[in-house]
Amino acid sequence: MKNEIISKIMEFISTSEFNKLPNTEIKIYDSPLIGFADVNNNLFENYQQKIGPFHMTPQEWFTAEFENSSLSDGTVICWILPFSETILKSNYLEKELPSKEWAQGRFYGEQFNDILRQFAVSLITKMGYRTIAPSLSSHWKRIYSDHIGHASTWSERHAAYAAGLGTFSLTDALITEYGMAMRVGSVITELVLAPSPIPYKGVYDNCLHYNSNRCGACIHRCPAGAISLKGHNKDLCFAYTREKVMPAVNDVYGVTTPSCGLCQTKVPCERSIPKLPKTKVSVTP
């Protein structure tokens, strides 16, 4: 059953006309990565403790969505949608604002991600198993916490980490086998599937900065000054994309969502997990 789900999701992504920028043949996403996490993985409770009580566990999503139904066993199915080479390279020369292709890829790409979520929910529900997409639920909300800053009631990135798809970076983005220039999606289902193996030991294993002190390319790429050796300042990033980027590009590009992506492009981890150097070298950005 797992192979059937993987096959149908991959086929949907490769054939859907929604996986293109409007009125073009430019593909938004390449072939995905797909991973599976047990709903009882302790990470989900750890997330709630570290992020905040508002961050719901898979069991709490089922209780909220299906009128107090319980979820004793099940699976969180996650996917990584890497941006196509055309969209990624379009952002290379940009220094302050995103390229048209990137901004539209972010806007229409997330619309397609929602369509994919609906497809996955329908697919598994028809197999006889209740399934929900947290990001499409009325219970999904943005939260601002004094403890952690901008957050939400469900984190796609954290779910993907639990499913073995990648580790975090200096920018807070997930570095996956297909890099960090991507979007993430997930569904929660009562269908029990074998969890994916976890190919890492720590939350920052795929980031050159944390493992070699050699990188910091994303620091130089950030026009907002939101990335430093201390990490990612969510408030500065949030303000820049809303106050600088959106007024400058949204009407011109025909989009309504914030975008930037400079820190995800023209960096060593844009398309893969960067190889660690043989010796550690300290570099001050």
Rank of each mutant, 00 (worst) to 15 (best):
residue 3 N to P: 05
residue 8 K to C: 07
residue 9 I to M: 15
residue 9 I to V: 15
residue 12 F to N: 01
residue 15 T to D: 06
residue 15 T to K: 15
residue 16 S to H: 01
residue 22 P to A: 01
residue 24 T to N: 09
residue 26 I to Q: 02
residue 28 I to Y: 05
residue 31 S to N: 12
residue 33 L to S: 08
residue 34 I to P: 12
residue 34 I to D: 08
residue 35 G to V: 09
residue 36 F to G: 09
residue 37 A to M: 14
residue 42 N to R: 12
residue 42 N to E: 15
residue 43 L to D: 10
residue 52 G to K: 00
residue 55 H to I: 06
residue 57 T to S: 14
residue 59 Q to C: 11
residue 61 W to E: 14
residue 61 W to N: 04
residue 61 W to D: 05
residue 63 T to A: 13
residue 63 T to S: 12
residue 66 F to Y: 15
residue 68 N to Y: 05
residue 69 S to W: 02
residue 71 L to V: 08
residue 71 L to Y: 03
residue 73 D to E: 14
residue 75 T to I: 04
residue 78 C to E: 03
residue 80 I to E: 14
residue 82 P to R: 05
residue 84 S to A: 11
residue 84 S to P: 09
residue 85 E to R: 06
residue 87 I to S: 03
residue 88 L to H: 08
residue 89 K to S: 15
residue 90 S to L: 10
residue 91 N to R: 14
residue 93 L to G: 07
residue 93 L to Q: 05
residue 95 K to P: 11
residue 95 K to I: 12
residue 97 L to Y: 07
residue 97 L to N: 04
residue 100 K to H: 11
residue 105 G to Y: 03
residue 109 G to N: 10
residue 116 L to R: 04
residue 120 A to C: 14
residue 124 I to W: 10
residue 125 T to F: 09
residue 127 M to A: 13
residue 131 T to F: 07
residue 133 A to V: 03
residue 134 P to R: 06
residue 136 L to W: 10
residue 140 W to F: 12
residue 141 K to P: 05
residue 143 I to G: 00
residue 146 D to K: 01
residue 149 G to F: 06
residue 159 A to N: 06
residue 159 A to V: 00
residue 165 L to I: 02
residue 167 T to G: 15
residue 168 F to S: 00
residue 170 L to R: 02
residue 170 L to N: 02
residue 173 A to G: 06
residue 176 T to G: 14
residue 177 E to T: 10
residue 178 Y to E: 09
residue 180 M to K: 01
residue 181 A to E: 02
residue 184 V to Q: 04
residue 187 V to P: 01
residue 187 V to Y: 03
residue 191 L to S: 03
residue 191 L to N: 04
residue 194 A to G: 06
residue 203 V to H: 08
residue 205 D to A: 07
residue 205 D to K: 02
residue 206 N to D: 09
residue 207 C to L: 09
residue 208 L to T: 10
residue 209 H to K: 07
residue 210 Y to V: 00
residue 216 G to W: 00
residue 218 C to I: 01
residue 218 C to N: 04
residue 219 I to P: 11
residue 220 H to N: 15
residue 226 A to L: 04
residue 231 G to D: 12
residue 232 H to M: 08
residue 235 D to M: 13
residue 236 L to Y: 09
residue 238 F to H: 13
residue 239 A to F: 08
residue 242 R to E: 15
residue 243 E to P: 02
residue 244 K to R: 13
residue 246 M to A: 12
residue 248 A to V: 04
residue 254 G to V: 01
residue 254 G to E: 07
residue 255 V to E: 00
residue 258 P to W: 00
residue 260 C to Q: 03
residue 260 C to N: 08
residue 262 L to P: 14
residue 267 V to G: 08
residue 270 E to V: 13
residue 270 E to Y: 15
residue 271 R to T: 10
residue 275 K to W: 11
residue 275 K to Y: 13
residue 276 L to M: 13
residue 277 P to I: 00
residue 277 P to S: 06
residue 278 K to A: 11
residue 279 T to A: 11
residue 280 K to Q: 12
residue 281 V to N: 13
residue 285 P to V: 05
